[in-house]
C-alpha cells in the first residue's frame, strides 16, 4: 500500500499528474489516496521531496 509521509509532503500535486489510475487527489493541503491505488510506485519515484513510499504489508 501507499504510505503518505504527511510531515514531508508539500502537497504540490506532482504525484497526482503521473497517476494512471487517478487514485491520488490533492484536496487543498491533503493528499488523498483512493482504494484503486495499485501501489505501482510511480508517484513515489517522482515526488520531489520523498514523501511517498510503497510499503508491503506483512503477511498475517
Amino acid at each position: 500500500m501507499l504510505k503518505v509521509h504527511r510531515d514531508i509532503c508539500g502537497y504540490c500535486g506532482c504525484c497526482v499528474s503521473v497517476c494512471k489510475e487517478g487514485a491520488l487527489e490533492l484536496i487543498d493541503a491533503y493528499l488523498s489516496v483512493e482504494e484503486n491505488c495499485t501501489s505501482c510506485g510511480v508517484c513515489a519515484k517522482v515526488c520531489p521531496l520523498g514523501a511517498l513510499e510503497v510499503v508491503h504489508e506483512k503477511q498475517v
Binding site: 500535486g13 506532482c14 497526482v16 499528474s17 503521473v18 517522482v46
Partner: peptide, 23 residues
C-alpha cells in the same frame, strides 16, 4: 498540473514519468 476533472470525464491526462519535471 494536478487536474482531475478531465480524467473523471474520461480523458486521459496522465503525464508520462519521463515528462514530469519534479521540482
Amino acid at each position: 498540473v494536478e487536474s482531475k476533472f478531465a480524467k473523471w470525464c474520461g480523458i486521459d491526462t496522465t503525464v508520462p514519468v519521463r515528462e514530469i519535471m519534479s521540482g
